[in-house]
């Protein structure tokens, strides 16, 4: 593997991590808000609070990792994406800021308010929608580049079916991933009512999520034929992803092995996400920027990879401790601690 490929793989792993943990978080916020409106909040409120409180800050770091890391490994992305994304990027930051701080105000300030939960629920769906803009843009055709000047073509972005397809895919995926995780968490907590409600949500969102996946795939053929062809070439990755999806849905339907079911969901998205990413290569921004011409110098690449390995050696045991205390400790989950 070249340094370029190692670099992008590292970053893609963090983005995948963010995709999973943030989806759980975003979806939880939405369900919390939605059930409040329909007076079912008492059923799932505790489950959501118990899981989210200790981990929300960790979620955010995955994202920070990605965007700081990409500037380290691929400094040229700062130039292209930085210039183009001023508005969508700022909107995403503002939404993230509102969400993170109001969550903390409500939870630690022990002060529940309708506005807080609304902000928390609404931003949960808007943030994935605004963040996916980056993936949309990377397909090419949404940016103009003339005499060293980068500009985002808003008309093109808002007028394209593909970009709306990606937004929808993001939202339904968030709801599906989140519900399937919380179903598992509720089963660990032995909370029957919450389990029943969350299982229903997981099943409701399962088919839309896979359906939108297919729709976006088809729309891509018109947007970026080269990328589409690359995806078709590795069709088996997506077939396996579909199989993982089928297994997950079957298990949730049968109320069996919900932990395995959630792992299947993770595998489903892992395969789809890495299949998508790998077939996108070598482009970081089609057709202007590839991983080869935007790459940092070799010394920095080695230093970053070394830092990454050192960092992981420190983080994995700590993350394990966190999970052991809050995710796998039956007494904690059941609310006895």
């Amino acid at each position: 593997m070249t340094y370029e490929v190692i670099g992008i793989t590292v970053l893609w792993i963090f983005l995948y991590g963010y995709l999973i943990v943030a989806s759980v978080d975003f979806g939880a916020g939405f369900y919390s808000y939605y059930t409040k409106r329909t007076n079912k909040n008492h059923i799932i409120h505790d489950i959501i609070q118990r899981y989210l409180s200790p981990v929300w800050e960790v979620t955010n770091v995955f994202l920070v990792f990605f965007f700081i890391g990409i500037v380290g490994f691929f400094p040229a992305t700062a130039f292209y994406y930085g210039t183009a994304l001023l508005i969508p990027g700022s909107v995403a930051i503002i939404l993230l800021a509102i969400r993170g701080s109001y969550y903390a105000f409500a939870t630690y300030g022990a002060h529940e308010s309708k506005i807080y939960t609304f902000l928390y629920g609404a931003t949960g769906l808007l943030i994935p929608a605004s963040l996916t803009t980056v993936l949309t843009i990377s397909e090419g055709g949404y940016i103009s580049y003339e005499d060293g000047n980068v500009q985002l073509l808003y008309g093109e972005l808002f007028g394209s079916l593909y970009s709306w397809g990606v937004v929808l895919l993001a939202i339904v995926s968030v709801l599906f991933i989140s519900a399937s995780f919380l179903t598992y968490y509720a089963s660990r907590a032995k909370d029957r009512n919450a389990l029943a409600l969350l299982r229903k949500y997981a099943l409701i969102w399962s088919f839309p999520s896979i359906g939108m996946g297919v729709v976006v795939f088809l729309l891509l053929s018109q947007r970026n034929a080269e990328h589409f062809q690359n995806m078709v070439d590795i069709w088996w990755v997506f077939a396996l992803s579909l199989a993982a999806f089928a297994a997950a849905t079957y298990l949730i339907w049968q109320k069996k092995a919900l932990g395995v079911a959630f792992i299947m969901v993770m595998i489903q998205y892992f395969l789809a996400f890495f299949g998508y990413g790998a077939s996108h290569l070598p482009y970081l921004l089609y057709p202007y920027l590839t991983i080869y011409d935007g790459f940092t110098n070799e010394t920095m690449a080695i230093a970053l990879i070394a830092a990454f390995i050192g960092g992981l050696a420190m983080l994995i045991p700590s993350l394990y401790l966190l999970m052991k205390l809050f995710l796998f400790d039956a007494d904690y989950i059941e609310g006895k601690k």
Partner: peptide
């Protein structure tokens, strides 16, 4: 950032590790 990324990417990257570490233990 394009120019500086080549030279100071390392401390910025390590800073995020430091946050990560801090965030995990603060939660615990």
């Amino acid at each position: 950032m394009q120019a500086a990324g080549h030279t100071i990417g390392l401390p910025m990257f390590m800073e995020v590790f430091a946050f990560f570490f801090e965030a995990i233990f603060l939660g615990i």
